[in-house]
Design a protein around this nucleic acid. Structure first.
Lengths: 245, 245
DNA sequence: TCGTGTTTAATTGTATGACAAAAATTAGTT
DNA sequence: AACTAATTTTTGTCATACAATTAAACACGA
């Protein structure tokens, strides 16, 4: 198995496609395009300065990752989750994390445990500073560490995909006052079970942590579902101000 | 002003893209293109009679689903699994199935249980007749039922994706004499636990069944790894008179 | 004002041609 | 056979085209 090494100074020229993919998914995950929004191809071409070919290839990829839904003859739309779909995904995510936690507790190296601890602290810091961007990065790092520590190399990708789908509430879960601290505590507890090399406890810790986070997320979801006065495909030209229903 | 009548024959005209996707993934899953094989775009265009545009979009999709790996400047290749990767995926699959089994046992309707039973019988039949194609169909049906019965609508897709990745040994696991019967027995046992509405037993049944199947799969994998006549280094290939205009 | 049918514009789905850059193959030379 | 130069394939990307479909704008009668 080859492990790729990235030289620090080396600026890797990405392909137009992969570049487009990254930028587009960022636009979605960061909420520039919101669930339900149409993604008009030409508009994306303009914004990203790439050809329709590349945009479409990126869209196909995002469709596969369920971030975007491509409706025949109508085009791509940012995927919107029903509460049911949300819960289904959450359940899977929890299960996956449980697997990771058990394995981490069993096989994780001390170095990996240390790395995980650092990630949690970084996240704590970011939360204290209320730095939205850093929080996101820290969360990603945490999950990356968590999954890698499990020793199952297919997990990071899978979880990344699940998280992307759930991303619409990601950035927001920290807006709930008091929650962040609680989150960190939950993660600390998880860390302890791993340190103690106790897979069953780790499993339980993940469930607990996910159960609590789910409640917040559900609240956020309800909030989202009530507010969206979805503008019917209007361009920048006109702004529809009237609210119906 | 043409009034379309689509009453009896519901032949839905698929898009070229989705058609291409299906056909291409079938070619891979059924082993026409084997792990490691290069997928030359123009070749695929010829074979499938579609434009490069559509082929490339389909390939991007398959890349996202990890059936194909697109190597920069080299092109798409049918993904090949190392033993480690295989085990990692298998572990995830088992976990996912466990989740499904527990939920099925808890929430599955009687009708769904019945459907599952039918699927198992259909599979049994197909195995007895040694009808390769029907076996594949039966397996798909079984998993579909199994996942749907769980009530988690995100599961069928996820499992389908995992199975596709593991597909290289799918068709073959039944070649091992004696295994099929054992498989069916394992599934019957699982069915019983679900009927008994016993989630923990169902969980255990899935683990058992997966553990046994894994052994077969691993053997098959070793077999595959030893035989491939791939040419990693430069090899001289004799070109017989392949003149062609 | 409100449908409701019609015309017009925007958008998607797909194909084709083009071309530089990177790889693979062939041919030529030692 | 080993190495290198020349040639052909193949990829990655863009631009253009155009039918089919959908959405928007418009017009008109109730």
């Amino acid at each position: 198995m080859t492990i790729e090494k990235k030289a620090s100074t080396k600026i890797v020229k990405q392909s137009v496609y992969s570049d487009t993919l990254t930028r587009l998914s960022t636009l979605i995950i960061e909420g520039v395009y919101k669930p339900g929004d149409r993604l008009i191809e030409r508009e994306l071409c303009d914004r990203l300065q790439v050809s329709r070919t590349s945009v479409r290839e990126a869209l196909r990829r995002l469709e596969a990752e369920r971030l975007v839904q491509i409706i025949p003859n109508k085009g791509p739309v940012v995927r919107r989750l029903s509460t049911k779909e949300f819960l289904d995904l959450w359940d899977i995510r929890t299960t996956i994390e449980c697997l990771a936690a058990r394995r981490f507790a069993l096989h994780g190296s001390d170095a990996q445990i240390l790395a995980l601890e650092k990630c949690i602290h970084a996240m704590d810091q970011a939360l204290v500073n209320e730095d939205e961007h850093r929080i996101r990065v820290a969360k990603n790092d945490f999950f990356e560490c968590f999954m890698m520590g499990s020793g199952n190399f297919a997990l990071p990708d899978l979880l990344r995909q699940l998280n992307a789908q759930l991303s619409f509430m990601w950035a927001s879960s920290l807006r709930v006052p008091g929650r962040p601290t609680a989150s960190i505590k939950d993660l600390m507890a998880l860390l302890e079970t791993i340190k103690a090399r106790n897979p069953e406890a780790a499993n339980a810790a993940v469930i607990l942590y996910n159960e609590r986070a789910k409640i917040i997320a559900l609240a956020r979801l309800a909030e989202l579902e009530s507010e969206p006065a979805k503008t019917p495909t209007r361009s920048k030209r006109r702004v529809q101000s009237s609210a119906e229903t």
